[in-house]
Write a protein that binds this DNA or RNA. Structure first.
Lengths: 153, 153
DNA sequence: CGTCGATAGATGCATATGCATCTAAATCGG
DNA sequence: CCGATTTAGATGCATATGCATCTATCGACG
């Protein structure tokens, strides 16, 4: 009758809390680095997502699925990035309501610069903490989690 | 000479990105639930941390290590919680600069209410996504990561 | 003890965020 | 083809956040 000491609900809660705290701890360190002096985290996230987009152009609403921001905040964030000359807008060809975004050359270059530094910082944090095998397992589990959660209805 | 297809730096970056995206995906769902109608995420985090504190009282600066917020923002957040009657302050007995915090009865009750719902939501997200063994492994890896990253001086 | 640097919080101010709402374009139903 | 509903983004406004700075206390050292 004894469970192995933990109900499924409690296990899930503890797992989430641990994941969340780890994310906070790493993020704290990353934000302290000089990489985020020029762009805020969410701004970098947008630049990064755009840099990974195969066609170069991405719809604003698709971008919104990636970032933990409300629609209105993202709208204004992009407005700021545009004013700084880091992204360019274009009306969507097939949808008169839509807006397409892409990095400008300056935006792409800034993303690459920050990205390089960012990747070094990350490596410096994860490398000493987890073996390669553990990192792979962590990547696998978080991918699985994300896809399960992201899968709608 | 062939690596197994992945440099350590790249693996670390991908692992972090996957962890981060999973956190965003889960957080999005959690925030959409009715639990966060009454208190914002960071506010709940403070209530939760206080509820877990053995002595009941916690220093403001210790709280700050837990939450992804600047010192000034936490200061004002606590001020709001105090105005809402959810936490109480006390001058630290051994340190005239310090402030001690604890939940009021109303704060403890609200935390428990939201916590219950929160835990149910989490279970509903993680349960279908990962087996119990996978959750335990994820918990282990993220704890290891957090302790390694946090143990900095 | 008295001065000096470090630490805990609070506060002024500029900016970022979210909610509600608005406009315009697409889609649906007849 | 037309009106009704839905969807993509933008915007007004109140609030939350961060940076720089300020005050008060602590701790070290002469």
């Amino acid at each position: 009758m004894a469970t192995d000491g933990e109900s499924p609900v409690r296990l899930a809660a503890e797992t989430w809390e641990s994941l969340f705290r780890a994310q906070v701890a790493v993020m704290r360190k990353l934000q302290a680095g000089p990489a985020f002096r020029k762009v805020a985290l969410n701004e970098y996230d947008v630049l990064f997502t755009l840099s990974r987009c195969p066609s170069g152009w991405l719809r604003l609403n698709e971008l919104n699925d990636h970032v933990l921001l409300s629609q209105s905040s993202l709208s204004r964030l992009v407005e700021r990035l545009e004013k700084r000359g880091l992204v360019a807008r274009m009306a969507a060809p097939e949808d008169g309501r839509g807006v397409l975004l892409k990095l400008t050359d300056a935006g792409a270059e800034l993303q690459k610069d920050i990205g390089r530094e960012h990747v070094r910082d990350i490596s410096g944090l994860l490398g000493p903490a987890l073996t390669a095998a553990e990192q792979k397992e962590l990547r696998r589990l978080t991918e699985k989690l994300r896809h399960s959660v992201g899968a709608r209805h």
